[in-house]
Simulated assay, not measured.
Amino acid sequence: MQTFFLHRYAAHKMFTMSPGWEKFFYTLTWIFQGSSFLSPYAYGVMHRLHHAHADTEDDPHSPSFSSNLFDMMWKTKNYYNKIVHRTDSIEARFKKGVPHWEFMERLGDSWMSRLGWGVLYTLIYIQFATAWWMFLLLPIHYLMGPVHGVIINWYAHKYGYVNFKVNDTARNLMPFDFLMMGESYHNNHHKFGGRANFGIKWHEFDPTYPLILLLNALHVIKLKPNNDLNYM
């Protein structure tokens, strides 16, 4: 949901969907992100700013303007909260067309929801963990949304390889992305921001793209015409 709904739909609108399906995927985002639910609205607005101001002082999350990844995460959190609580001064053009469902935004961001999911995760670990060290994974599980984000926004701006020259430090973190559902092809994405398939070279398989094609074939979503040429 983070790459399919928040990133490719909310931020970039690589495809369209009906209001009903939009609420369906909003709900799935809450279920799958759980305690680390990220507002599709805030994510979409913030990510558009990232593309517009990548690696400048106006970038909401750039390693170039943070001393370490925790500093960047803290700055991102503060930026995110301003958007969620509508105390930001961001230009209207960055907010145009970004999905917003007030009920799910409030539910997902509530402490009752976050604590409830956290308790559920802990109970599952208590029931099924077979060694003490497995409990060390719980903090990552609690914060999996931000952890996913920091892997790309920090490490994919520092390490990896480059296919295209861009005006920022975006890199492809892994030659075969088996962890981030295609998100680690960050250099490709910064070059072609509206392209639904993040992979370019033969070995760059984007696991999310076949799912997008399937949902398009089932008429759940509608890919924009000539999507591979629709660069944002």
Rank of each mutant, 00 (worst) to 15 (best):
N81D: 15
G97Q: 08
P60R: 02
K82L: 12
K96P: 00
N78G: 00
E91Q: 14
F65E: 03
W74F: 14
S66W: 03
E102S: 12
S64D: 14
D55L: 12
L107F: 06
M72T: 11
A92D: 15
E102F: 02
D88M: 03
K82M: 12
S67V: 14
F94K: 09
H53V: 04
E57K: 13
F65K: 08
I83P: 01
R86H: 12
D55Q: 09
P63K: 09
Y79K: 10
V98R: 03
T87Y: 00
L107R: 00
K95E: 04
M104W: 10
Y80W: 11
S62P: 09
K95G: 00
D55E: 14
L107Q: 01
T87L: 08
I90M: 06
F70T: 11
L107W: 04
S62G: 01
E102V: 09
H100C: 09
M104H: 02
Y79Q: 12
S89C: 10
P99F: 01
T56M: 07
K95S: 03
F70E: 00
M73K: 12
K75Q: 15
Y79M: 09
I83L: 01
D59I: 07
T56E: 07
L69H: 09
A54F: 08
M73I: 14
R86F: 02
H53I: 04
Y79F: 12
R86W: 02
V84T: 05
D71T: 14
P99H: 04
M72C: 10
Y80T: 06
V84C: 02
T56C: 05
F103Q: 00
F103A: 07
S64L: 15
Y80R: 08
F65H: 14
A92L: 13
M104S: 05
F103K: 13
R106E: 01
S64A: 15
L107K: 01
I83S: 05
P63L: 11
F94D: 11
L69C: 12
K96T: 15
E91C: 08
K95P: 00
D71V: 10
M72Y: 10
V98F: 03
S62D: 08
F65S: 01
H61Y: 10
D59A: 06
M73Q: 09
H53T: 10
R93H: 15
Y80E: 05
S64R: 14
P60L: 06
V98W: 00
T56L: 07
S89Y: 01
H100A: 06
M104K: 03
D59M: 03
F103I: 12
R106P: 02
S89N: 14
E102D: 13
V98C: 06
D71W: 00
D55S: 02
K77I: 10
Y80P: 02
D58H: 13
H85I: 03
K75W: 04
R86T: 06
T56D: 08
M73S: 11
T76Y: 10
F65A: 03
R86S: 08
S89H: 14
M72E: 15
H100I: 04
N78I: 15
H53W: 11
S64Y: 10
P99W: 02
E91H: 11
F70S: 07
P99S: 05
W101T: 02
W74T: 15
N81L: 13
A92R: 12
N68L: 09
F65C: 00
K95L: 06
K82Q: 13
P99E: 05
I90Y: 01
H61W: 04
S89V: 13
V98A: 00
I90L: 04
P99V: 08
E91N: 10
K96H: 11
K75F: 10
